[in-house]
Amino acid sequence: MSSVTGTGPAVEARLWDRFTIRQKRVMWAWAFLAVPIVFYVGIRFYPTFQAFWLSFTNWDLLRPAQFIGIANYQRMFADPQFWQVFRNTFAYLIIGAPVSLVISFVVAYYLDRVRFMHGFIRALYFLPFLTTAAAMAWVWRWFYQPVPIGMINGLLANFGLPSQPFLRSTEQALPAIMVTAIWAGLGFQIIIFIAGLRAIPSTFYEAARIDGLGDWAILRKITLPLLKPTTVFLVVFSSIGFLRIFDQVYNMTTNDPGGPLNSTKPLVLMIYQTAFSSYQMGYAAAQTVVLFTILLVVSLMQLWVLREQK
């Protein structure tokens, strides 16, 4: 970490000594930040603006980009497939996020009180979080097969229940894929909830007991309000995860990506196909701008709603 020009160590030292301690520290600070600033400007901010710019062009990899105004957006909003994908994306969010949060909270709430084999049971729930989504998507795809190879339909048949089409159904395919995403994320959310529960000082509970509150009242009046920072974090975190779902859908529907009949296609898969199967980079950039807007609005809305409830 030597600094400034190299006319010789003596000159350098004298120059450096002329600064006050405060000035030196400021210079250190900017020296520490130099590489990161280049990184954030070059790899984050500049590409962001470029994505906006590209969304107004017809760039297709092979020919140079030309400005075409809002034509990409007009085309997108007139495309029924886009609106289907839009609905799908929100379906992943609106069903996926609450269901996973409720399940993980219930498990965390009870698991936190269990002492016997606590670590073992916790590990069971946590293990799926460590798996690779692209790998487990294939395991689930196999589970969902019709008889005679499908695990789940095999079970249903054993109980005399009618077999289900799962991935071969426009109604069931999306929830079936969503289950795999919920499954993979559950362990993480449970751990975070447990950490949140443990961070609540026990004096609150003792006070509540003295006041004669029951379990349910304690949960409502003490636990949930005090757990709010954790909940906010998890709501935002899991919402963003569901809005960006890709790995599972891509791998579970390789024969008919996002199918059947686009019923499982999320926005990110549409972006991938537009950009990297059809090379319509400009159109794909417009779709990424929509994704950006959705994520921004959803995150801000959640933060706002959860703050208001206080």
């Binding site: 089409p165 071969r168 159904s169 426009t170 008919d256 199918g259 059947p260 009949l261």
Partner: peptide
């Protein structure tokens, strides 16, 4: 593929 899906699924 979509034509087949409309007939076989829907």
């Amino acid at each position: 593929i979509d034509m087949e899906a409309r007939m076989s699924i829907q």
